[in-house]
Design a protein around this nucleic acid. Structure first.
Lengths: 344, 344
DNA sequence: CTGAAAGCGCTTACAG
DNA sequence: CTGAAAGCGCTTACAG
């Protein structure tokens, strides 16, 4: 054993240096009580001198835990998921977990592949942000060999916990907000006609509910399907709508990216926001504060979603694995900014 | 051994089911040649039936590898780092590695803490996006127990590989572009007066170089310090500049977020872009395509930075650990969009 | 081409 | 309060 050697010290090296058994060193490291102060001190000194850091693979092999959770999300270029990842990492860290992120690229095959990935076996648990999973995939979810919590809309029954916002109520609040400004021809931007459930379907439902409650008939020409919810798609859809000549005085966009894309086109075409058209989005992305005009939006409580999901997962990891799956809805709030300021 | 048992199969279970030794199973899994086809087939069948997945902790303990690399970045709310993380994950995956992301929250203590984190020991290598590290921290970098590649400006000498863009040349190109449009009073937005090196210092140098080359004297009142480079900071700085009454006809913002924040304030105040003021940023964030007007910017070759850094790291992990540290500069390009369109 | 055995570095009953 | 020993599930020389 050379002083200053580059080779990594093990528990045995520390034990030898401190003149105790490896059990005692392990006890000190893992914070067990009932160790004589002078023993503890000697061990800690040896740890410092040798720059000892436990071998995580050995610890995991023995304990069966890795203190890592996986976060499976569509992609981090989408600011919603980047901000979600940030929130999840903060919540996980508070609970003593690191986060391994896996992207899956917006298509179904890629999403399924992520759930079959062998890496899952090396994680204590998985947070999965659902995009295309459906009832037929429930069996696949059962086969994931670790605890798992789903984020986003529950499209199906499964044995897994699940955390989501109140999509329908959020969209209803957004629509009611525009109705309260006196708007009557409100575009619903981002529907997915083929999906009854999932965020698009639920948000469309909320839109319809709000109209019904206000006695405003639903005009199908105001419901605009947009397949992907990126900014470019919102811009494209907005151009198409303007080109048809359909009249409207408000927009409920089903996410902020769509709203921001639409905003850009409206301004480009000389449509004034909010004077001519009031616009509200969904997600409360950081950048909605800085768009021109600043975008009103539904804050889905993303931090709370992250915290709740991590807590549920940690509980499962901690042994609450037999309990029935839980479904948690988080609170949302309406954020009023310039794009829906009163103008009349 | 119950059929359909929930307990996880091990190599021994597979070996027993296939009637071979665990060595043979291991050989099949790790793709060694020279296995009789029928043996391989029997083993593969047993693996399928038992849903066998290797225990990664055991594999790591034995092999000394985890097939995971760490990515240490300031924070994912910043779109630059979210897009970088995306690029790094794609590059890593191609090389067979997963990515564990660690954020460090923009302050020095947090950045240093990330480098001391015990989790590093469980990774095959580290990619670290430098924010505040300086010469005095070189010793700390030596102590990181795994291969490491630094991203971003090299502020100091160390024994680690390093990948960055040509900051000075990029800023020079951006400034020259505005000069080429006939602009003469060009704001430099985002300087850090106390830092001579690092991105802010190098970009300011490029700005100064371009002015000098064009014979335009540098006016200190046009060099605007901005501490943080978030959109809100760009907006605040822009308001402050407009309030002083300083005249200008161009802006070189030291990153896109600053540019986007400034853009918002300019439009709010009725300043026309690019007619009154031409604006160019730095980073080529996805959203610069969709701002109003679309933002010209310097594309730093982020994907190439990510790929290069991952490749260097993988080479170190693969044993090229004795070679002297390499410094790699990636190519940038100037992306012309509406915010610097010719108007005269 | 395949097998028996050692050992990676921990944690955890089991003793004392 | 501390020690000696087993064993987590792999990979890897070493034999044959």
């Amino acid at each position: 054993m050379k002083a200053g050697s580059e080779t990594t010290a093990t528990l045995h090296d520390v034990a030898r240096a401190a003149g105790v058994s490896i059990k005692t060193v392990s006890n000190v490291i893992n914070g067990y009580p009932h160790i004589r102060p002078e023993t503890r001190e000697r061990v800690e000194k040896a740890i410092d001198q040798l720059h000892y850091q436990p071998n995580r693979a050995a610890r995991s092999l023995r304990s069966g835990r890795t203190d890592m959770i996986g976060l499976i999300v569509p992609d981090l270029r989408n600011p919603y998921f980047a901000e979600l990842a940030d929130d999840v990492m903060r919540a996980a860290r508070e609970r003593g977990f690191s986060v391994l992120i896996e992207q899956f690229d917006l298509d179904r095959d890629s999403e399924l592949a992520a759930l079959r990935d062998a890496h899952l076996r090396g994680l204590d648990g998985i947070l999965h942000s659902v995009l295309t999973l459906e009832q037929g995939d429930a069996a696949l979810l059962e086969r994931v060999p670790v605890p798992m919590v789903l984020l986003g809309e529950r499209l199906f029954e499964s044995s897994r916990d699940h955390v989501t916002m109140r999509n329908t109520e959020g969209a209803q609040a957004a629509t009611a907000h525009l109705l309260g400004l006196g708007r009557r021809r409100i575009l619903a931007l981002g529907s997915h006609p083929s999906e009854e459930f999932g965020s698009p379907g639920l948000r469309l439902q909320g839109y319809a509910d709000a109209l019904a409650a206000a006695g405003v008939p639903l005009d199908d020409s105001l419901v605009v399907p947009v397949d992907l919810w990126h900014r470019a798609d919102g811009a494209d859809a907005m151009r198409a709508v303007l080109d048809t000549g359909v009249q409207f005085d408000g927009i409920v966009a089903f996410n902020d990216s769509l709203a921001l894309g639409a905003l850009r086109v409206l301004l480009e075409r000389g449509v004034r926001v909010p004077e001519d058209v009031a616009v509200i989005g969904f997600d409360d992305l950081d950048e909605t504060r800085y768009s021109l005009p600043a975008l009103s939006t539904i804050n889905p409580g993303r931090s709370e979603i992250a915290r709740t999901a991590v807590d549920l997962l940690v509980a499962r990891i901690g042994g609450a694995d037999a309990e029935p799956p839980r479904e948690v809805f988080t609170d949302f709030s309406l954020v009023e900014r310039e794009s829906t300021a009163a103008t009349r």
